[in-house]
């Protein structure tokens, strides 16, 4: 839930998470935009159970998502990386 009182953000844009369009504001991390959209699963464990972000400071690696840029897909910590217009993010299995 974004705090709105006393906070002004730039123009929102969309990026893709597992094919769904998610709205983000400039400067927001992938994690913040996902949580604001109530997308709480960032990866799946070995048994296929959804896992959420835990530490929000780059320590726990629970928020590792696949961020695709052209042919390259990187597993990045969603809590550290700002969302960008047109970005393609995939949650899902770890490897």
């Amino acid at each position: 839930m974004r705090k709105t009182q006393g906070v002004s953000r730039g123009e929102p844009f969309a990026f893709s998470v597992d094919g769904d369009a998610i709205q983000a504001y400039p400067g927001e991390t992938i994690a913040a935009a996902m949580l604001a959209a109530e997308a709480t699963g960032f990866r799946r464990d070995r048994s296929g159970r959804a896992r959420g972000l835990f530490c929000n400071m780059g320590v726990c690696s629970e928020c590792l998502v696949h961020v695709r840029e052209g042919d390259v897909s990187r597993r990045l910590r969603a809590c550290l990386v700002p969302a960008e217009p047109g970005m393609t993010v995939e949650t899902g299995l770890g490897e």
Binding site: A32, L35, A36, D45, G52, L53, F54, C55, N56
Partner: peptide, 25 residues
């Protein structure tokens, strides 16, 4: 504690301070 939505308190506070977001209702 591995269910999505369970976070550290420090991480929760960081969302409020920095991203101006409460990570839940």
């Amino acid at each position: 504690w591995t269910l999505p939505g369970v976070m550290s308190a420090g991480g929760t506070q960081a969302f409020i301070k920095s991203q101006q977001l409460v990570p839940g209702k």
